[in-house]
Simulated scan of single mutants.
Amino acid sequence: MTSSPITTIVFDLGGVLIDWNPRYLYQKLIADEQEMNHFLSTVTTPDWNEEQDAGRSIAEGTALLVEQHPQHRELIEHFYGRWPEMLGGPIQGTVDVLTELRASGRYHLYALTNWSAETFPVALEQFEFLHWFEGIVVSGTEKSRKPFPDFYHTMFTRYNIEPGQALFIDDNERNILAAQAVGMQTVHFQSAEQLRRELTERGVL
């Protein structure tokens, strides 16, 4: 089956355009790497973080975790108290791709991100390229997140996007499969070089 012509490109943010990693903070706080990895995988887990991305308040999420792990109160409170230190900067190769797509004027550009509504303003202030998108759908604001279909449909409806003509770029395979299920074309992001290669092969760049 021939794919529809691409008119819209949708970017994930964390891991695609922005280098975000809790290790950037916690390597300053926990000297032993094995101990740090254990803390991040058993206390401030990705599942816990995703609940804030999905709209739970930082205060509620932090209090819940402190109640479960009172011996780690200070380390838990640093997760959002020092959250900007988890930002490693832009993934420049991908920003370069975005720059070229924007300059071409051929596509509508949007972002679909799992991100806490309370921390997203920090990213907006720090990264100028976030202001290049025609729209950004933020999970914490919508009280839903990838990979749930309704989150993708919120974007389709709000910006009048035809799913089959939209290309979605994300580093999480779970989110890629969900995008395919709602009819989008996809690129599973692994590196800026790989993204550039795939977009060139598809005639997008």
Rank of each mutant, 00 (worst) to 15 (best):
A31K: 09
G105T: 10
T45P: 09
L75G: 01
W83R: 12
S57A: 05
P121N: 10
A111D: 03
F79T: 07
P163K: 00
F148S: 04
N21K: 10
T113E: 12
E100N: 13
A166V: 05
W48L: 15
V122G: 00
A123H: 00
P22H: 05
L29T: 02
S116W: 00
Q190H: 13
T200Y: 07
P163M: 01
W115Q: 02
G61H: 03
R106K: 15
Q27P: 06
L101W: 11
H72Q: 12
E51T: 14
I176E: 04
A178N: 15
R145H: 13
F168W: 07
N172I: 14
Y159S: 03
H188F: 01
F120L: 05
P22W: 03
P90Q: 09
F133G: 12
N175D: 10
M36D: 00
P70N: 05
S191Q: 06
P70W: 04
E201H: 01
Y26F: 12
E201V: 04
H72I: 03
A111S: 13
D171W: 06
A181W: 05
G183A: 08
V182Q: 10
M86I: 12
L205N: 07
R56Y: 14
Q185I: 05
I58T: 03
L87N: 07
I176S: 07
W115C: 00
G140I: 02
A54G: 15
Y110H: 11
Y152H: 15
N160M: 04
I18S: 11
R106Q: 15
D171R: 08
P70C: 02
E142Y: 02
F79K: 09
A59F: 06
G14R: 01
S3P: 11
G61Q: 03
A179R: 07
E142W: 11
M1H: 10
T62K: 04
L25Y: 06
F39R: 00
E125P: 07
D150P: 15
A59Q: 12
H78M: 07
F39E: 00
L98P: 03
T141G: 00
I76T: 00
Q52E: 14
L17I: 08
Y159T: 05
F151T: 03
L167V: 04
R197N: 06
V97G: 04
T2F: 15
T44I: 10
R73W: 08
S4L: 10
E51G: 11
L75A: 00
F133P: 13
Q68M: 09
T141L: 08
Q194A: 13
T186K: 10
G140C: 04
L101G: 09
S139A: 12
V137Q: 10
H38L: 11
G105Y: 08
V43H: 00
P121I: 12
A103W: 02
I18Y: 02
V137P: 08
Q52H: 05
V43Q: 02
